[in-house]
Design a protein around this nucleic acid. Structure first.
Lengths: 110, 110
DNA sequence: CCCTTAATTCGACACTTGTCGATACAGAGA
DNA sequence: TCTCTGTATCGACAAGTGTCGAATTAAGGG
């Protein structure tokens, strides 16, 4: 298992990143590089059941369109996935991507 | 040991980030959110002896002033430290910060 | 001193990003 | 079908970012 993680990348301390890998990984880090986005991500990640409705997490001090915009960015970066169920849209964390980032930074895969 | 790491933060999956912690951590992720910067960081981190002279790592496809600019950003984010020795300036990774990010993403501290 | 090499700082500019209000879309119920 | 609530998209704009060439500082060697 975890083939996708193995694909990219070993810890930064062990080998130099290729340009392509750097582009891929930088996009993920960039997605967490905004305080509002990081908080949204954190709210989803720590929410009971592993998923959260937008309505559960949208209290981060910015307007509703801005929340939606940031969630889209997190989705495009592959960090979150979304699913509509009835009126509500639920977001959940993509664990492989999270693990890949953690691994790159030198931690063990969770 | 690792008091600074413990100070910020437990894994995202275990608790929601405060606004202040989100600002602190987002700044670190942001620093790695550029491909050129991530490559520079990777080159320093994987360099023999745990440190690298600017001249060792400046071949990343952008001009030398741009390299210097990115290294400054990484320094300001606390990810790298620098020291001048004679003509050359050496950069090295700050391990606590790296560990804090990895921990936040759910990996074990390295 | 002057010259050479290493690295940073400066000034400028195109491009990206975060934010908002207004608007549109989706589903559930009356 | 009309309305209400939840979410996404649009259009606009100020602020931030990555990049460069030119100029500057730092250190060493003639």
């Amino acid at each position: 298992m975890q083939d996708e993680i193995a694909a990219c990348c070993p810890p930064v301390t062990s080998a130099e990143l290729s340009e392509t890998d750097a582009v891929r990984m930088a996009a993920m880090f960039k997605a967490l590089g905004d305080p509002v986005r990081l908080r949204l991500f954190s709210k989803v990640a720590s929410h009971a059941g592993g998923e959260a409705c937008v309505c559960d997490i949208q209290d981060v001090g910015v307007s509703q369109p801005t929340v939606s915009h940031h969630l889209k960015k997190l989705r495009e970066a592959g960090l979150l996935s979304s699913e509509r169920r009835g009126t509500w849209v639920y977001y959940r964390v993509e664990p492989q991507v999270l693990a890949a980032m953690s691994l790159l930074l030198g931690g063990s895969a969770s």
